[in-house]
Each structure stands twice: as structure tokens, then as C-alpha cells.
Amino acid sequence: MALKGNLRDFSTTQLLNLINLARKTGTLTIDAKRERSRLCFKEGRLIYATSDDDGGHLAMMLQRSGKLTEEQARAIQSRTDIKSDKELGLLLMNAGYVSQDDIVRSVQSYILNSVYPLFTWVDGKFRFEASVLPFEDRITIPINLENVIMEGSRRMQEWEHLLDYLPDLDIALRFVERPSVRMRDINMSVEEWRVVSFINPRNTVRQIAQYNNMSEFQIRKIVYALLQAGLVELTRPAGVKPAPGAPGKAPVTMRPPAVKRGVVERLISFFQQRS
């Protein structure tokens, strides 16, 4: 049986919940506007995840977790004699570059970081293919979906909060003339500095995100922090759209009909005879 649809109608949380409860084995592919993610499951547990952007190779995972440098990762990926991630893992362990624990943690972290952003996706076609599993050369780590769903839902709430706070990305930022905090007490991350460098009434928040190759979640989080710190302000008020359609009238509770058991039995007997 196919499991196809769109995240507009069936969210990532609902999908993962379904896969968990039905203990499904297979691969879930989600296609959004510019991204494609693949999640693999075995008996309801997440075992692998990747997106088309990065290919999901072990060298890249170890680089992201700081176990390999960019040069080392690039050198490894350019080697053609290493056939699989499993082979590469053994090679690196034998050479003393990483431990088994480093590999497990890096792969797990990569999988989770590939999955969590999906909770904020509100549009994208999905398809679950039963019994299709990742290539054998990939390292898989079984992860309980309950915890993933809980953390994903928490991030979703955070996302919704950010969305409420900053519903429109097509607005600009400007520095406040008299900040209420002392500038020297503020510590900003590299990402925040990158955003700050683009703050100008001519640049919309969306454009700043594009210049810095940031997701909507990332830019909203940073702008939220800057607004909260009182460093910047929106150049025009964010218009929040009213909630769609007022709910209909409340349903009325009625009494069930007074039908005798004998009537129901006659109906059953009638249909059974016709079958």
C-alpha cells in the first residue's frame, strides 16, 4: 500500500508517529521546493537520514562534528579506493583518527540534524516506500522515534512562536537610535554578526537570509534575538493576518434513537441473507 501525500495535509509529526506506531520498515522521501530528504526506518525506528544537499557521507558527518578538518574530509571523499562508509570508518579507527564512539555520535547527530528541520516544513510531497532501505555501504544507527518526535515537536513550537513574532519576512530592520542595553555587554555569534552586517532598511529579512544562505528558521531565530536584545527594530509594523474563518456554531447533542435490539437483528439477518 502506498503512503503518499503532502505535508500540507499530513505533517511530519503525524507521518513519523504513523511510522512509529505501525512499526514500518522502508524509506520516506520528502520533496520540498528546493530540497529532498530521505529518512529510512526499520521496524518503526529511524536508522538513517540524508538530504540531497550533502550526500550523507561519513567524512562529511565527521567533519561537521569536528572530528575531521575540512581538508581531511575533502581528501577522503576524493579517494576512489574507499568503497563504503563502513570501510572508511574502519580505516579511520585503525589509523587512530577517530573512535567507534566518535563515529556513532557523528552519524546519530547527522541523522537527527537532518530530521529536525523537517518538522518545520509545511509543504512538500512525501512518499513512503515499504521495505526500501539505505544503501548497504552506509552506517545506520537505530534511533527511537518517540524522542525524535518529542524534540521535533518542541522545535515546532519554537518555530510557531517565532512565526507569530515575525510573521512577515518581507520587512526590513534598522538599528535603534538609542539601544537600551550597553553594547559592550552583548556577545554575538558568527551567524548573528553575519546578519548584522546586512542590516539596512533597504534589505528585507528574507534577502538577508538569502545572502547568508540561512533557512527561515535560522533567520527568524537570529532576528528574534536581536529584537529581544533591543538592538534593532522593524522598519514597519508586522501585520498579522486574522485567523481564517470563525468556527461554526457549536454542535448540538441529541439523543440516540430508540431502536429495539430485535430491529437491529432483523437488519443484520436481512443483509446476511443477501450476501
Partner: peptide, 29 residues
């Protein structure tokens, strides 16, 4: 259900089509 607390069943129609969701998946969904 709010109108009347009477028995009901859910019928997953169009099960003859290739892309039909299975009844057990629909139950969860």
C-alpha cells in the same frame, strides 16, 4: 459524534486504487 453518541464505522473507500492508504494507516492518521 457531538451530534449524537451513536455507533459508527469508518469506511476507507477507493481501496481498489493503487495509491490508496491502507485502513490500518488511516486509523493512525
Amino acid at each position: 459524534r457531538a451530534y449524537a453518541p451513536v455507533p459508527y464505522v469508518v469506511a476507507a473507500n477507493k481501496q481498489d486504487l493503487e495509491d490508496a492508504w491502507a485502513p490500518e494507516d488511516l486509523r493512525i492518521a
